[in-house]
Computed example of a mutant assay.
Amino acid sequence: MIKVSVMYPNGPETKFDVDYYKNSHLPMVAESLGDALKGMEFSVGIGGRIPGELAPYVAVVDLKFESVATFQAAFGPHAAKFAADVPNYTNVEGELQISEIM
């Protein structure tokens, strides 16, 4: 099992519409990926190491798949649609990491 994390860097100029992301973008992603998507978890950063410090990431979504190949086959055909929706919820580029779940 793998986890694909999309992490949106935070900063003083970062804009992120949590409601749009949660209620429009993520449902579109889940519907597009279908049965290949085995689980999803969305979290919003609320702080860093020091009290009052910004969280390093304004938001993180973790998508679970059986394998990298399954992820690539499901995600690839929809990548342009997902990317086109980004300006609707943020002004930053998400960082993507693929991890093996141990």
Rank of each mutant, 00 (worst) to 15 (best):
57 Y>W: 10
39 G>C: 11
21 Y>P: 06
2 I>R: 04
23 N>Y: 09
25 H>S: 06
47 G>I: 04
84 A>Q: 13
41 E>D: 07
91 N>D: 05
12 P>Y: 05
13 E>C: 14
23 N>P: 11
86 V>C: 02
93 E>T: 11
75 F>R: 06
55 A>M: 02
80 A>H: 09
91 N>P: 05
41 E>L: 13
93 E>D: 14
67 S>D: 07
82 F>P: 01
11 G>P: 11
75 F>P: 03
68 V>T: 14
92 V>N: 03
24 S>R: 13
30 A>C: 09
50 I>R: 10
63 L>T: 01
44 V>A: 07
61 V>R: 02
75 F>W: 13
62 D>T: 06
53 E>M: 13
21 Y>S: 00
90 T>E: 07
69 A>Y: 05
66 E>C: 12
48 G>F: 00
43 S>R: 07
29 V>R: 05
71 F>T: 04
57 Y>P: 14
67 S>T: 15
4 V>T: 06
38 K>W: 08
66 E>P: 15
3 K>C: 08
10 N>Y: 15
75 F>G: 08
53 E>F: 10
63 L>D: 04
39 G>W: 11
70 T>S: 05
95 E>W: 13
3 K>V: 15
50 I>S: 15
98 I>V: 04
51 P>A: 07
72 Q>S: 12
61 V>T: 06
80 A>N: 08
37 L>K: 02
13 E>Y: 14
79 A>Y: 11
5 S>P: 04
50 I>W: 05
97 Q>I: 14
15 K>E: 13
82 F>Y: 02
60 V>W: 00
77 P>M: 11
60 V>F: 08
98 I>P: 09
19 D>T: 09
15 K>G: 14
2 I>C: 11
102 M>F: 13
90 T>C: 00
72 Q>P: 14
40 M>P: 13
92 V>F: 03
